[in-house]
Every structure is written in C-alpha cells, then in structure tokens.
Amino acid sequence: MSHRHKIFIATLLFFLIGLSPIASSQENGSPAGGSATHPGILDRAVMCEKVTDGQPVNTAVIFPVSQKEVFCFTEFSSITKKDVIVHNWIRHDETVARIKLTVEPPRWATYSGIALRDIDQGPWRVEITDASGAILKTLRFSITQ
C-alpha cells in the first residue's frame, strides 16, 4: 500500500450477505465455476457510495471527492473453496492500493474502499483479480469535484 496515498480501507470485512438467498442458491446446487485458481463466478462488481446491509448503495461511475469515500463491491457465486481475490485500486495508471479479500464457499460478497482527498480527482479503475493476478473484471470510474 502506497504511503503517498493514505488509503483508508473502509473495511476488510468479509461477511455473508443475504444469507438466505445465497444459501438457497448453494442449496439449489448451482455448479461451482472456475478452475483450481478461480475463486468462483463473479456475479456482480460495482462502484458505489456506500455498502449498507451487505448491499451497494448508489452505484455510479462518477463520484465527487466531497463524498469522502468510495467502494468497490464484488459478489461471487459457485465458490468451491476458501480463496483470495484482490482489488487493485489504480489512479491514472498508478497502483495506489492492493487489497486482498477472502471469499468462501458457496457464495460470498465482499468490498473494499478508499478515502478520497482533493488530489485524488481524475480517472480511476479497480482491477479485480484472482490470487494469481488474472484480471476478472475492470471497473472504470472518475473522481470529480
């Protein structure tokens, strides 16, 4: 993690969300996807203002710096074993934070976030990768005034 950017990880909480629907999905016997290094199927990946009750709030691609923080929310299914994913926060081609998150079978949702400052204005992206570094999805967004 870069010292220049005082990244505030909103939380590394990994928690089970919507226990019943995800559990039911597991129970429905959805096939586990991915190879040995694949953490599962990435069902949802969004940028949002907040995560409340395990759900992303106000998903968007432009966030004002006055909002103070921004989050990347990811949701996986068909997870076969406890695994690790990474959220790489990149500002204008410079990686400012690499946040490792754990995912567990059968379904798991997790998120990371950063605190925003004035100098963080500009184009950003979050690359969501598996443990081996393979990019699962790239989310692009902007931080504005």
Binding site: N58, V61, I62, G122, P123, R140, S142, T144, Q145
Partner: peptide
C-alpha cells in the same frame, strides 16, 4: 488499448451517473 472517459467538474447534487 482500452479507452476511458475522464470526467471533471462538479456534478449536480442529487444526480448520479450510473453508466458510461
């Protein structure tokens, strides 16, 4: 190489850009 929109300025209160 992928292209990304680079937004700047101040978006009106109460609005959000959900997709680009």
């Amino acid at each position: 190489i992928p292209v990304q929109a680079d937004f700047s300025g101040r978006l009106s209160e109460g609005l959000r850009v959900t997709g680009v």
